[in-house]
Design a protein around this nucleic acid. Sequence first.
DNA 1: TATGCACCTTACAGCAACTATAGGGTCAAG
DNA 2: CTTGACCCTATAGTTGCTGTAAGGTGCATA
Lengths: 137, 137
Amino acid sequence: MSDQSITIGALARAAGTTPATIRWYEGIGMLPAPARSAGNYRLYGPEHVARLGLIRRCRDLGFSLDAVRTLLNRTENEEGDCADITAIARDRLAELDRKIADLTALRRELSRMIDSCAGGTIAACRIVEALSPVSRS
Amino acid sequence: MSDQSITIGALARAAGTTPATIRWYEGIGMLPAPARSAGNYRLYGPEHVARLGLIRRCRDLGFSLDAVRTLLNRTENEEGDCADITAIARDRLAELDRKIADLTALRRELSRMIDSCAGGTIAACRIVEALSPVSRS
DNA sequence: TATGCACCTTACAGCAACTATAGGGTCAAG
DNA sequence: CTTGACCCTATAGTTGCTGTAAGGTGCATA
């Protein structure tokens, strides 16, 4: 093992993920296949650490792997316009806003249902009643 | 087809879902297998409409199918205590709160990244920079 | 030298909760 | 009697991994 290369476990620790995930990224082409040691171990260099780090940061921000793929393609061309990247980020922001609004509405509804229940038997439970479709139409 | 039964398509429309989903629910035991017509069509009665309606309402509120299964079991016993149901609902509420908080934090971070970018080339893009792991350690 | 242990290898199955596709059969209307 | 909307089964694909089985490697310790 050369002094610059690390095993899959070390790379996983460095990026806050697992060897299984890294192998899976390699299989779907998100990470290039690295060199191998005499004993067939994968050997990663700093460029892998950087690329995997970027992938994981994007995933933690909720980007789909497809979006990350596009982002990685764009960043390959340093002279390119960053408008595409901004657009992807803005799409994700809009998606987040939609999701937050949806969940907040659900939260309100569920909270109302819980508050309306005073305990007792299932037959009397206002949550069950609220969930039953007949009570809606 | 008796006057009280409807086909899978009608049931799907009534519950705001699709025939494929209903068949899938039947396969995993969420919905009982209904009677069949002479031509082997599934024939559903009002009890199926009620049960599927409840399932879909719960799913729309973000309950897992597993939680819905438990809910359905509990509601079978009308004299039982509704505490279990309240507990499931409260769990879901807590989960929603966590999720909303997470997404709100992500939204803030992403929004900051977008604001920091003034356009130009990829090399200068602050979003790319913010996503790169080197800028974090 | 042996042996244990942590780590690595591949291949494949499974998770949630559906959705889509292929290749057919049924039913009512025109 | 054909058209078109509907239904049937079986199987594969989706996203992003995670878990399992069955084995090989590398290093420290007895």
